[in-house]
């Protein structure tokens, strides 16, 4: 059985006044967004996966029918951005904990930042430039609201 490592003082002192401020904001954001995300994601799962026909109802017509409404556009936008920042902030802490080599840690942190920005921008563009009734599409695949157009 391996011995527990000795706890030695860090070689480089850490400034607790500045580290503390950033980390406190990070922790506050994690809690507040976490509570909001519980409401958003549980609603999302209830409507899409439990209500009605559950997983079987999910197709283009279902998603387009929802995203045609500004309420669900903004609901999904808030869920997307909060979930990505909450998740990326958690991943940032995990990378800091386990990636001990500085170059490797920097690579992972940058990959995380780039992936987060790409996903948030892509998701936002889709939510707000999306056409629920594309003109050249098979009408049988479209939501019922397209019949009125």
């Amino acid at each position: 059985m391996a011995q527990a490592p000795d706890l030695t003082a860090p070689k480089r002192p850490v400034s607790h006044s500045t580290l503390g401020r950033a980390q406190r904001w990070s922790w506050m954001f994690q809690r507040i967004s976490g509570v909001v995300l519980i409401v958003l994601i549980f609603t999302h799962l209830f409507i899409n996966l439990w209500w009605g026909d559950g997983i079987n109802q999910i197709d283009f017509a279902f998603v387009a029918g929802k995203l045609a409404s500004p309420f669900w556009q903004w609901f999904d936008f808030l869920m997307l951005t909060l979930a990505m920042i909450h998740g990326a902030n958690g991943m940032r802490m995990i990378i800091d904990d386990y990636a001990r080599n500085p170059a490797w840690r920097a690579t992972l942190q940058w990959a995380l930042r780039i992936a987060t920005v790409i996903i948030v921008v892509l998701g936002t563009l889709v939510l707000f430039t999306f056409d629920p009734c594309p003109a050249d599409a098979d009408p049988s695949l479209l939501p019922s609201l397209c019949e009125d157009i």
Partner: peptide
């Protein structure tokens, strides 16, 4: 979540793809 945003983004491509 990363995968889920990418698969949902297919609604922007075409109904058939999604």
């Amino acid at each position: 979540l990363l995968v889920h945003v990418l698969d949902t983004a297919l609604v922007r491509v075409s109904p058939e793809a999604y």
